[in-house]
Computed example of a mutant assay.
Amino acid sequence: MSTFEHIRTAVITLLRAESVAFDPPPRSLARSAFTRRVERVEMRATGVPIEDTDIVLARLDLVAEDVRVRFSLRGPALDVGETTFAATLTQDQLSTLVPLPPGVDRLSVTRRGFTFHTVAGIPIYTSVSLNDSKLVVAPSAPAKVPLLDLIGIDIDMPQLPVRSGLEQLTRFGLTFDLPELPANAAIERLQLHDGHVVVSGTADLNSANAT
């Protein structure tokens, strides 16, 4: 097995990915390996599963910097100075990953935050922030009946028992754990887009050497 194939296989195994595309491409990367150092390697992984779920990441991009190839009797191994990642989650995936309160059947994502859609058709608008790898959603506007609100009748959502998860969401907000990602990924940032979110941070590709 070539130096590049050995390393590619180790990265695929670490990420549990179906495939990983490299930039620089395989032939250039293999030649660079003989210098023992590559300043920057970009990777795009497909088919990466989310821990303890049946969900596959929509997209996972990684950038490894100061990559050195170390040779030993066990074969070539990577020494990576730093690896950053960006993982994309669609709103359909989030609707599955986030434990929605009873009475909420799905959520949608915009650049402004999450909208929780209740089975009664009442949207709950929230702002979203990241705190210690947890999603924190807080109500950004009173929940109202859409049609009545549209024609100018201001009717808030009926009050529910405080113990209700839906009432907790509308009054105080909720905190959700984010899923675990491979390669000891530490989620540090969250970007909202229409229809999806991107979580990013640092990962550890050096652990690929243990595979």
Rank of each mutant, 00 (worst) to 15 (best):
G165D: 12
A86R: 15
P179L: 05
S127P: 05
L130G: 09
R171P: 04
A185Q: 01
L130V: 08
A87W: 05
H117M: 02
L160E: 07
I55G: 00
V69T: 15
D132W: 02
T88H: 09
L107S: 09
K144R: 15
A120F: 07
I55R: 01
P158T: 11
P76E: 05
F71V: 14
A186D: 14
V80I: 14
N184M: 11
P101C: 10
T96P: 00
G81A: 04
L147E: 09
H117S: 14
E188Y: 02
Q191R: 14
T53G: 05
G152D: 06
T90G: 10
S129V: 01
A77M: 08
L94Y: 02
V63F: 01
T118S: 15
D66R: 13
H117L: 11
Q91N: 04
P139D: 11
S108M: 06
V136T: 10
S108V: 12
D66F: 00
P101H: 03
L181V: 10
I122D: 10
A86V: 08
F71Y: 14
P161I: 06
R59I: 00
P99Y: 06
L135D: 11
P142Q: 08
D54S: 12
L174M: 14
F114I: 09
T115Y: 05
A143R: 02
S72R: 07
I155L: 15
L62S: 06
F85V: 09
L100R: 04
R70W: 09
V69K: 00
D61P: 00
L147P: 02
V67F: 02
T88M: 13
V162G: 01
L148H: 05
R106I: 00
D105A: 08
R70T: 10
S133N: 12
L78P: 01
S133V: 04
D177Q: 13
P182F: 05
T175V: 13
V145C: 04
D79W: 05
G121T: 07
Q191F: 07
L73R: 15
F116M: 01
V67D: 01
E82G: 07
P182V: 05
F176G: 04
I55M: 02
L192Q: 07
L169Q: 11
S133D: 13
L181F: 07
S127K: 13
G173T: 06
R68F: 04
F116D: 02
T118P: 06
D177I: 09
G173N: 11
D149C: 00
L94F: 03
H117K: 08
L62F: 09
P76C: 10
G75I: 12
P182T: 08
G121S: 07
T88Y: 07
Q91M: 10
